[in-house]
Design a protein around this nucleic acid. Structure first.
Length: 599
RNA sequence: GCCUUUGUAGUUCAAUGGAUAGAACAACGGUUUCCUAAACCGUCGAUCCGGGUUCGAUUCCCGGCGGAGGUACCA
């Protein structure tokens, strides 16, 4: 970092002195030299050709001469290939960089202070009518990782969850339980609460479809049948009763929600995610109604003849949006407005991030405009962290049709697979207790799942093949965890052998290109964290960790650190290993992935 | 129809407008007297099509074609 800064400044100076023009630091493109060329850092000179009025080669040569002359301690050598000036940085410099990283436990992570910006991140947002599935898993992991990343970039972060605990979908489950449930409870059946409720949601849909079929057989159109089926009518009545505070409906609702929450807690805990503040839609939707009516008074919205309330966004190039139904009940948008109001009362929010799937892009576009109109300062630049869907080989997951990958099943399968793999291992550690082996399997199984999901660019749809499950080899969490465990093992053994890494490393040690390459990669960690923060995308951290580990593995195979005769080299390599393990722990930690000391 | 988004090896994923487009999996072939073989090395193999901007395009712009999502009383 420091080195690059000095070089960039020197380039600016060089252009001023050689060609008599001022250039902005930002136009100086300094990048890592490609492996197939000699050197460590490469200056791209094409942008300066118009200033130098020379051929690319000559311009690069000029700049190379200037830099070598003015930064003799840093630039050991340089070469020119076409418009690329490749700089070789001296070993001493790299040792200094390594020493600095060795002493630094933050490595580019910024700790927030009391007056740092406050970022609120909403994620998870489950419906209380069904258990969490793979789509929620992606949401939860992204939300958790993004929260860590934002915090690592020096923001105060409040993780929040809005539980969609009311609405027609909840009534469907409730109704089905009343009709077909025979009084079943999680205790009586031994089924996890969220799964039990999910079963009734499916049951509702089954019976509802049957009714539709019947009505259509009697000559109704499909739309008509969907509207007129007795079950859906009953569900609607139930929703109205709920909104009126009907004590029977409310009691049932409360009971069923408790079951679901108990189930969710287990799942969240297993995934290792959590929240600072949970909001419930049942508490916020009335606030939303108020806010909408307030907007109606102020003339932002309009009421139609049937009583429904709408926002006309044709000015903004969008459609009209429904805010209150004709029967007076709230819709999704109403609730989000209410939640925003409560949140703003509770926290001095500088930035609001919603982690919600890309199917709701339109919704958030509208929400942003509405919040802005209603006077929320952060409304206009709220961030919709919009992630892609998780697809199965045969298409989308549909909970009503039962084609879902259940979160609980998935987690336990991953852990079981990790357990099996460790048992198959040839060199399994015999001195590990059963308890510790299970803990390692848990860490590795979850690591495989989390990494698999987080390594993919969040915006893109991703494919999950349940048959092939998730690899434990290649670009995977366990591969990174395994490397970490091996480094920790080396460091333990070094300590046992009485080797300790000094605070300041010997600057005279000779470094190989591989070692320099690793130092450069470690130094990139801070940049990667920053990038993840500004792009709202944790995937670059996952890919960074993989690249680093892959590089280290080659290193690991080429050198025998503990047997190294040259003391200076040994210390440098130990320090390098320690830094790699430190960065892996930090990076994986941001992703919410644990790393085991042994495996 | 309209809006948004996406298109890279057989498959799953990478690549601030930079050099010969990287990995992994699958396939085939090698490596263990040595710090954990869940490892390492090698072979095979890709930018949807057509224009444009640029010294230079997988990346930016325009037009096709394909996938996904949304499209107002579901959330």
């Amino acid at each position: 970092m420091e080195i690059e800064k000095k070089i960039v400044l020197s380039v600016v100076e060089a252009i001023k002195n050689l060609y008599g023009q001022d250039v902005n630091e930002n136009t100086v493109q300094l990048q890592k030299t490609k492996k197939e060329f000699e050197g460590h850092l490469t200056l791209v000179v094409f942008p300066f050709l118009k200033i130098s009025k020379k051929k690319p080669e000559d311009t690069a040569q000029d700049l190379g001469n200037y830099l070598a002359e003015n930064l003799p301690q840093i630039i050991a050598n340089f070469n020119v290939i076409k418009g690329f000036l490749n700089l070789t940085i001296s070993s001493t410099c790299w040792i200094e960089v390594l020493t600095a990283m060795h002493q630094d436990n933050q490595l580019g992570i910024t700790t927030p202070t009391a007056d740092s910006p406050l970022v609120m991140i909403e994620y998870s947002s489950p419906n209380t009518n069904k258990p969490l599935h793979l789509g929620h898993v992606r949401n939860n992991l992204l939300g958790w990782a993004l929260a860590n990343v934002m915090e690592a970039n020096g923001n105060r972060v409040v993780k929040t969850n809005i539980v969609n605990d009311r609405g027609i979908h909840i009534c469907k489950s409730m109704l089905a339980w009343l009709k077909y449930g025979n009084g079943e409870t999680p205790e009586s059946t031994g089924i996890k609460g969220d799964h039990l409720i999910g079963n009734y949601y499916v049951a509702f849909d089954k019976h509802y479809k049957e009714q539709i079929k019947e009505l259509m057989a009697q000559g109704m159109s499909e739309d008509e049948a969907k509207n007129e089926a007795p079950l859906i009518k009953e569900a609607r009545e139930m929703l109205v009763k709920w909104e009126q505070g009907d004590s029977e409906v409310r009691a049932l609702w409360q009971q069923m929600n408790e079951w679901v929450y108990a189930g969710f807690d287990v799942t969240y805990k297993a995934m290792g995610v959590g929240f600072d503040k949970i909001y419930y839609e049942s508490d916020t939707y009335l606030e939303g109604k108020d806010k909408v009516l307030e907007g109606l008074e102020k003339g932002f919205f309009t009421r139609k003849e049937d009583g429904s309330v709408w926002a006309d966004l044709t000015q903004e190039g969008l459609d009209e949006k429904l805010l209150l139904r004709s029967d007076g009940t709230s819709v999704y948008m109403t609730q989000d407005i209410g939640t925003a109001k409560l949140r703003f009362q509770d926290y001095p929010i500088d930035k609001m991030i919603y982690v919600v799937g890309n199917e709701q892009n339109y919704h958030f576009q509208v929400l942003s405009i509405l919040l802005d109109k209603l006077g929320f300062e952060w409304g206009k630049d709220l961030v919709h962290f919009s992630y892609g869907m998780v697809e199965l080989p045969n298409g989308k997951m549909k909970s009503r049709e039962g084609t879902v990958v259940d979160a609980d099943d998935l987690v336990s399968e991953m852990i079981a697979t990790a357990k099996r793999m460790s048992e198959d291992k040839i060199n399994k550690l015999t001195d590990i207790s059963e308890e510790e082996a299970n803990e390692i399997a848990r860490i590795v199984g979850l690591g495989a799942l989390k990494y698999f999901i987080l390594k993919v660019d969040a915006r893109k749809n991703m494919l999950f093949n349940p048959e092939e499950s998730i690899d434990f080899n290649g670009n995977t969490g366990p591969f990174i965890q395994y490397t970490y465990a091996r480094i920790r093992s080396i460091l333990r053994k070094a300590t046992e052998a009485g080797l300790s890494i000094p605070e300041t490393l010997p600057t005279t040690a000779e470094l190989s290109e591989k070692e320099i390459g690793l130092i450069q990669m470690i130094a990139d960690f801070g940049l990667t964290v920053k990038q993840a923060g500004s792009d709202y995308n944790p995937s670059c951290i996952a890919n960074y960790c993989y690249e680093l580990v892959k590089e280290y593995n080659q290193f690991y195979h080429d050198f025998s650190i503990l047997r190294e005769e040259d003391k200076e080299k040994q210390l440098v390599r130990l320090a390098l290993s320690a830094c790699v393990s430190k960065v892996i722990r930090l990076g994986m930690g941001l992703l919410g992935i644990e790393v085991p000391e042994r495996m």
